[in-house]
């Protein structure tokens, strides 16, 4: 597996590393500037052997008004993992597509467009429905999507729920009955 220090030096030659999030043998996760993301990903693929795009993920940093895009790459020769994270403005979030470089990216981006509302210009299929069907509301994986409010609006309030004491409830049906505790409770 590739030494993480060597990997870090290679990333630093392309991008400004803002933070090393986690590192171990054959594993490096760094945060870089969003302006460096595309060039760093392309270089990782073409020059460092990270040919496989494992995952594109998003963390909604709503408190900072940012989306954290995370790209997980794998080198199939030695199974090393390189993870690149970058922050993008949350409102009107636009991220360059990778579907021309990795065909698998098209599907990841479709899902993120649907679940977070992130725009990937150049991805021809991002507007195709993926998991949700006929969804018109706020993208549901955003932190500010209120699931309870949505549920009440779509399906109405839950019916009034009566809570029953099992002893009273059963007693009404079958009559009172004796239990070992009856005497103590009655006293």
């Amino acid at each position: 597996m590739m030494d993480s220090q060597r990997l870090l030096e290679q990333v630093e030659s392309t991008a400004t590393v803002l933070q090393v999030i986690r590192r171990s043998d054959g594993y490096l996760h760094v945060s870089i500037g969003s302006q460096d993301l595309l060039s760093c990903l392309i270089r990782a693929r073409t020059e460092t052997g990270f040919l496989v795009l494992q995952l594109i993920s998003v963390v909604d940093r709503i408190e900072d008004g940012k989306f954290q895009l995370t790209y997980i790459l794998e080198n199939p020769d030695d199974s090393s993992i390189l993870i690149l994270s970058a922050l993008f403005p949350r409102e009107g979030c636009t991220v360059p597509t990778l579907s021309e470089i990795w065909p698998a990216a098209e599907t990841f981006e479709r899902e993120l467009h649907e679940m977070y509302g992130i725009d990937f210009p150049g991805n021809d299929r991002q507007d195709e429905e993926f998991i949700l069907e006929g969804w018109k509301d706020k993208p549901p994986m955003r932190r500010d999507f209120d699931t309870l409010e949505y549920s009440i609006r779509m399906f109405g309030e839950r019916w009034p729920r009566n809570h029953h004491d099992p002893r009273q409830f059963i007693g009404e049906r079958v009559g009172e009955w004796e239990t070992p505790m009856s005497g103590e409770e009655g006293s």
Partner: peptide, 17 residues
């Protein structure tokens, strides 16, 4: 913190971020 873990499932590499 953040971590990506992976195991080999019967269908191949399976990961959790």
């Amino acid at each position: 913190g953040e971590v990506y873990t992976r195991v080999e499932s019967s269908r191949g590499e399976y990961g959790y971020y």
